[in-house]
Amino acid sequence: MARKISNRRKLLTTIIAWVIGLLLFFPIFWTAVAAFKTESDAYTLPQNWLSTPWTLENFGIVQERSNYFRYVFNTSVIVILSTLLGLVFAIPAAWSMAFAPNPEGGSKISSLGWLGIVLGSLAICFVALYFNNWKPTNAVIGILLLFIFVVPASLWAWSRNTHNMLLWMLSTKMMPPAGALIPIYLIFNRNGLVFRDWGWANWGDYNIMDSFWGMVPLMTLLNLPIVIWMLFTYFKEIPVGILEAARMDGASLWNELSRVLTPMALPGIASTCLLNLILSWNEAFWSLNLTNKYAAPLSFFISEYSSPEGQFWAKLSAASMMAIAPILIIGWFSQKQLVRGLTFGAVK
């Protein structure tokens, strides 16, 4: 600050800011207090939060009764694997858009290609009809839908230039989950019901509901647009000249990526991972809808306290503290780098 501020004004600001800061933080503080009280004291907390004794018993009970560590394990598996999987997709994609951009737009599909798509879809319909004893069922309609809507839309996306490609990727993050919930729920849930009259699709007993096989890819897809986008902005800050220097120095593409680009982008990759970590750790919509036991993460674990039996506030508080503490600390450390990811770069 170049301007001089009187100490009186500074004192006033300090008081106001601290009061507001403490007020906003208060619910978290209050939960922390309740976590260390006995169950009966927790219910009279407003009257006697200082006078009642402190205890650690809640943490033990939470673990004992609802197997807290199992949920931590589940959350960690989902968060870590989906972050890694996301990086596997996102690093090459972000490299491509930052350093080998395609100003004219991607591959346009030729008329021959379109002919192939139409003939291919007809052929698949034909096969489907054959296996269904020539009855025109929803299977045929499903396939036609795929080829009338999904394939052209995907090709449209693929033909974007780099700028529009990024915007398209971001826009996929804006799609409301309610629009995808039904098919995802059905695909995850029970084979027979989704495809109940899609005669050809009797794939046996597959069921990825409430499993890591479903949750990890789903979480990856949910955050992939933001991960790609954030990595892209970090890669963009690396001068192309340095990569060119590596090329002149005889580095292969692999060496260029592994010895020059990745080490230089490491801080950016780290903060991308952190944002991904926070987002998927706190994700609730899909977790509540698609898990209930085996792959249930912490947000599901907490939701189980919404209607338990008996006294539960102290245990709820203890469980809550255990669920939020890691991410709160990570959030504190990375808040400054998160802004760019949280606004899609629209604010600098």
Binding site: P239, G241, I242, A245, A246, D249
Partner: peptide, 15 residues
């Protein structure tokens, strides 16, 4: 990388 030339850049382009 296969041309056997070395280049000095305006921006130095050091790692």
């Amino acid at each position: 990388s296969g041309r056997g030339l070395a280049m000095v850049f305006q921006s130095y382009a050091l790692y």
